[in-house]
């Protein structure tokens, strides 16, 4: 018997125990296999409050809600709300919380989802707060790792690209500290993992190392998590072009990699993963994007105590 899931608000992956993570992944698997009734959210009305546009995340949540028989209202961008008239986030959430059974929030400022959860007694789910957290992305990343490797322990996981600003990297690295993994962080020195995340990983006795090239690292990996390199992070265009080419993964680079290697990417990609990789058995990024719906279904079912 699995332990009960106790989180009421889904704000940060740091709030999750190992058991909480495993519970969500197990339920998501059962939903995918058709073992769980889909109408679990019948009679539940959710609000998707997107103070910053993110069409893919919003549609993934709305699909998850509707596929479980729930209903959803909301807005796709702050331009249409009274925040433009100067209403505070706390007031907006307090009022919206009276109309619905739960709130899914995306907001450009760090910590906004935590603040929102303090303003209402209805469950609040963070769909991205600035550069801070995006816990459902992390859960679907973990789900895809488990799906591709059949386990979360004894894995070698390589993060590559922009590790400094990449929010998905920070949360996933934090979540992986619950498991027995070896982490490699591959980035140009100016975009390496921030010290506070490295400290978190170090504090959990996880073995990790920093590298500035995928050479020699790729062959060890069970999972490679690629991230987008954004031109605006570089002060010098030549430097950007040089780095961009260095971190571009092509099908021909995959000679000698492990058979089980899974390449993940939170998408959208720019040039980090060449389209020639798409037809190899190592391409898991589309599958990963697709897993977003079942993982969000599982999470909603648990938040509303339906399982």
């Amino acid at each position: 018997m699995a332990q009960p899931f106790t989180l009421k608000n889904i704000i940060s992956i740091a709030d999750f125990s190992k058991q909480d993570i495993l519970t969500i992944l197990k339920t998501a698997r059962e939903i995918q296999q058709g073992k769980i009734s889909l109408r679990l959210l019948e009679g539940v009305l959710m609000a998707t409050c997107f103070f910053e546009a993110s069409t893919r995340t919003r549609l993934s949540f709305e699909a998850a809600i509707k596929r479980m028989g729930g209903d959803v209202i909301g807005f796709a961008d702050a331009a249409v709300t009274s925040t433009k008239k100067g209403e505070t986030l706390a007031d907006s959430i307090k009022i919206i919380g009276q109309y619905v059974d739960g709130i899914i929030i995306r907001h450009p400022l760090d910590g906004s989802a935590r603040l929102a959860s303090c303003a209402t007694d209805k469950p609040v789910i963070n769909a991205g707060d600035g550069s801070n957290q995006h816990p459902t992305q992390t859960l679907l990343d973990l789900y895809t790792i488990k799906e591709s490797q059949k386990k979360l322990d004894e894995l070698t996981i390589v993060f590559a690209g922009d590790l400094k600003y990449g929010r998905t990297v920070h949360s996933l690295a934090q979540a992986l500290t619950h498991f027995n993994v070896r982490l490699y962080f591959v980035a140009p020195p100016s975009l390496q993992l921030p010290p506070h995340i490295a400290d978190d990983v170090k504090g959990r006795q996880i073995k990790f190392s920093f590298h500035d090239s995928l050479d020699g690292v790729l062959q060890k990996a069970d999972v490679v998590y690629m991230t987008r390199m954004q031109a605006e992070r570089f002060s010098d265009t030549n430097e950007y072009m040089r780095v961009k080419n260095m971190y571009e993964l092509k099908a021909e680079d995959l000679k000698g990699v492990k058979k089980n290697l899974a390449i993940l990417h939170p998408l959208p990609r720019v040039a980090e993963v060449h389209t020639s990789v798409d037809t190899t058995p190592h391409a898991w990024y589309f599958r990963q994007a697709n897993n977003g719906v079942v993982v969000r279904q599982a999470l909603l079912a648990h938040v509303f105590g339906k399982l």
Binding site: T88, L89, A90, H107, P108, L109, D110, G111, S112, R114, L115, D129, G130, S131
Partner: peptide
């Protein structure tokens, strides 16, 4: 100290 922290934008 983080300028993009919500507490620097709302009374919290």
């Amino acid at each position: 100290p983080h300028p993009q922290c919500i507490t620097n934008h709302e009374q919290a």
